[in-house]
Design a protein around this nucleic acid. Structure first.
Lengths: 190, 190
DNA sequence: GGGAGATGATTAACATGTTAAATGAAATGG
DNA sequence: CCATTTCATTTAACATGTTAATCATCTCCC
């Protein structure tokens, strides 16, 4: 399952209170490092959790986890898709996908076939039962999405999406230092 | 551990290609539902993954997972903090935190004490060894963050942060339908 | 053809996410 | 005071995330 609402408010601001105690042992010239709660990964994670918090009750009421929903959702708009491609679309790793597909197949929400021309590959498609489940959940989801849009502002939401995609593209174009990247392992002058 | 780079590019656009096949069994008036890959949760997840991808190699090289880093990072700027508060700050659930603290304590990166006035509560603080580890990792992280800022644009990044926080606040103020929320369980007219 | 290496999918093993339940200690109310 | 309830933390149990290894198939090249 995905996040469920790890934690929130509370004494989360204790940090700033005792921020004066920061860097107590940091040697002289060290910048005290970015305020933790304002780091980009944390902001993105909290934002996503704030969003998902509203969708999970409906999903759960229909016996679906976040990941299962992503899979069915991706399958709902196509006829069939190969496992690897599904992993990309639903943003899941192979092993997780493998396990979840096994479960969804057991529940007759999806079907699998092996590609005749290449027996290593398998394709996945949603069943009528799976589509029915989607049709049952979708209206709730769309209503929630609509309410979110109303509260945050449609234009601001679109702008946020654009900025997120631009960020994603900027960072995908940035070489990963220390990672077994495709290239650019240049000077690790640290 | 956190995400590790579940999947990316590839045939991720197969969706839009065969989008014509969408809603094949959707009964008449049904809107075909939001394009999956453009959903806000997916955008946020992909953006976060694009960010974390750059930080993980450095963390891993120092023997730290994303969650362990969040904990040490949160502890580094305060003298001590109670377990529950740490869960809020590091955005972890109690059980996960419990396990991770056990491990970090075993590695002498943190220390724990029980509060004398309330034996149920425990406080956590970072050790000298833990601080040393942070000092070793921090320069790498800051350098990566700086490069990200340079590529995406400092102003745009600040604006994105603001928009994320506004989104978070908007959605925290929005009642959760079907969740065992504090109130507003009004009409579930579905 | 046939073997070496590449590829797609699954399995294995362990860390974390997630919910429920258990444990131990403190507050509360008779 | 003591029983009940509440609270902080941990444990239990299972799903998922993550990396490495396995297995079967396929490709390429000799």
């Amino acid at each position: 399952m995905g996040l469920k609402t790890p934690a929130r408010d509370g004494a989360a601001n204790r940090t700033s209170e005792s921020a004066s105690a920061a860097g107590r042992k940091m040697s002289a010239g060290q910048a005290p490092m970015r305020e933790f709660s304002r780091s980009l990964p944390m902001s993105l994670m909290r934002a996503r959790e704030a969003v998902m918090r509203h969708f999970r009750p409906s999903l759960r009421a229909h016996g679906l986890t976040e990941q299962q929903w992503r899979i069915l959702r991706a399958l709902s708009s196509i006829d069939a898709i190969e496992v690897t491609d599904l992993a990309h679309v639903a943003f899941l790793l192979g092993p997780s996908l493998s396990r979840i597909l096994r479960d969804l197949e057991g529940r007759r929400l999806i079907e699998r076939k092996t590609v005749k021309s290449d027996l290593r590959r398998g394709t996945v498609s949603i069943t009528a039962k799976g589509l029915k489940l989607i049709e049952a959940v979708a209206p709730h989801s769309e209503a929630i999405y609509a309410e979110m849009t109303r509260r945050y502002g449609a234009q601001k939401l679109a702008e946020l999406q654009d900025m997120l995609h631009m960020l994603e593209n900027s960072l995908l174009a940035m070489p990963v230092r220390g990672g077994s990247g495709d290239a650019d392992e240049g000077d690790d002058g640290k």
